[in-house]
């Protein structure tokens, strides 16, 4: 006897059912999600090192440090101070416009490919159409909003540091939701245990 999910029209529940696919397909989906999480850990470490995690640090990385030339004095002036070489820190890492062009052309493409692969998994998780579309939309939007925030900051709108940070959180949320769905589809015992506990 077929259960409700298997008799639901495909258009309502997705294109396929990951849980019923070949073991190799399930293995590929699971390993993709795990490897993606592995990569995200290093993404975090890199961002913490070169940009910082607070809106202020992110703003300082992207907002161009423009000098208001009208406010400059006519003549240069200087001050000489003793220097402790041990305490000399490198300059704050800044992403200038040319570097952001380089980052954007590669990484927006990469985000799109990751979102597409996550969407392929989402289509097989048997989720209701509205929820499924929301997750797919969020998967693509997070990468787009991430770089939108960076470009808005580059245009001098430092307040949009929050948009870049929020996009990062959205990317995490999508990842966690899709990972959870993938694990439930791949490990049948997890589903049955949860049903019993429920």
């Amino acid at each position: 006897m077929n259960d409700v999910a298997s008799t639901t029209p495909t258009s309502d529940r997705g294109l396929y059912r990951l849980r019923d696919t070949n073991r190799s397909v399930r293995l590929a989906a699971l390993l993709f999600m795990l490897l993606l999480g592995y990569a995200y850990v290093f993404a975090f470490l890199m961002v913490r090192e070169f940009s910082g995690l607070s809106p202020g640090d992110v703003r300082d990385t992207y907002v161009p440090a423009r000098v208001d030339e009208a406010s400059l004095a006519q003549e240069s002036h200087g001050v000489t101070q003793e220097l402790d070489l041990e305490g000399l820190e490198g300059e704050k890492h800044r992403v200038d416009t040319m570097l952001l062009v380089q980052d954007s052309h590669i990484h927006i493409l990469m985000f799109a490919l990751v979102a597409a692969l996550q969407s392929l998994i989402v289509l097989g998780l048997g989720w209701p159409g509205g929820f499924r579309d929301t997750v797919i939309f969020a998967a693509f939007a997070s990468g787009g909003l991430d770089f939108s925030g960076q470009w808005l900051m580059k245009a001098g709108l430092g307040g949009f540091a929050w948009l870049t940070l929020a996009a990062g959180w959205l990317m995490v949320a999508v990842y966690v939701v899709v990972l959870g769905g993938t694990l439930r589809a791949v490990f049948p015992l997890l589903r049955s245990t949860q049903r019993r506990e429920g």
Binding site: L34, G37, V41, A43, Q150, V172
Partner: peptide, 30 residues
């Protein structure tokens, strides 16, 4: 049952790891 616990461990571990990239915008390192 063992698989169930293992799966939950994996979910928790990977989700925690993923949460660490909360500010996960891309940046080219110097």
């Amino acid at each position: 049952m063992r698989i169930s616990h293992m799966a939950r461990g994996v979910v928790t571990g990977v989700a925690l790891a993923a949460c660490t990239m909360a500010a996960g915008h891309h940046i080219t390192p110097t």
